[in-house]
Design a protein around this nucleic acid. Structure first.
Lengths: 166, 166
DNA sequence: AAGATACGTCAGCCTTGTTGACATTCCAAG
DNA sequence: CTTGGAATGTCAACAAGGCTGACGTATCTT
């Protein structure tokens, strides 16, 4: 309904109908986005929470527990439960900080890297297929819209992570 | 790192680094995507599961329980728990099917519509802001990539929902 | 009359989020 | 040296929302 008649200008992409389609696209696409890692994780008694932890430790080796808390946006109790199983299973190791010995710097072990690679290979494969099918300019638009959709706080982290590794 | 020198052709958008950025963009953007409705829902003892149910009942009034199960991809026990609270609170009503009396056709009540509007207004507002900031061609690309990221099954449903309303 | 389908429901389990409380360890300021 | 605050770990309890399995009932189809 509404379907405003074409009045020269093109704000047609902002109709409620179009926005609703975007919303559902996010919903369904996110399911696809997590489906492959989820399958791998299910076979090993891990969940998405483990995936997220492993991902961000891999991408910022030596990050502290506090950093991880901020990025993941969960409580320390929740994160700690996950980290403990990763320690116990020998996927992640924590080294006491040199400068500040209260901090724990987190690193993937060899075993941890293996899992990380399995998970991100699966996820990247889907991403790559989607990117290839859509083409470079669509990918550009995809990233632009997603970035605009983030909270300012999240965008800061997303962009901050872009360059500074350690 | 890597930063392959521009060699005429442009498959540069398929580098692992680019894919990883896309993956994180999905992660952070999805958080933003759900943040506003989540806040509303938290104030009324509902969760995302209720949101999803209300959304799809609104968009396909008269849909059956079975349809909803397929779209949401959860078990009937899980869905039922949510639907029951929506019935009890008078947000959704179920009418016995005319042709097939085994089926329950689901409709939002006035109260249900009110909640639905509050939720989708919040979500659309963010979406609209992101769309506006990114511009029409970016939006086009955004949708193209998301569609390519879905499972075939999910894409079928997403597209099927596009036209046929009832 | 018999089997299949649509739905509801009871019971129990898991993951992952939450709060609150408390201990430890360490840095830094006084 | 002491003390406050920061970073971390941990215990306990709880809730949402997934899951499986089993069973019941109404209804449709054959």
């Amino acid at each position: 309904m509404a379907e405003p008649s074409t009045h020269g200008e093109s704000l047609l992409f902002l109709t409620d109908e179009n926005l609703r389609k975007g919303i559902e696209a996010m919903f369904f696409a996110y399911r696809g986005f997590t489906a492959d890692p989820d399958r791998i994780l299910a076979d090993m008694d891990y969940g998405r929470a483990h995936h997220r932890a492993v991902h961000f430790i891999n991408r910022s080796p030596g990050t502290t527990v506090g950093n991880l808390l901020t990025i993941l946006g969960v409580t320390k109790q929740s994160l700690n439960r996950v980290l403990r199983t990763l320690f116990d299973d020998g996927l992640v190791e924590a080294r006491v900080g040199k400068q500040d010995k209260r901090e724990r710097h987190l690193y993937l072990t060899e075993k941890g890297h293996t899992l990380e690679r399995a998970l991100s290979d699966a996820q990247r494969a889907r991403m790559r297929a989607a990117y290839r099918a859509a083409g470079p300019s669509a990918v550009q638009g995809f990233r632009t819209v997603l970035e605009a959709m983030m909270d300012a706080e999240q965008r800061r982290q997303y962009q901050g992570l872009k360059e500074g590794s350690t």
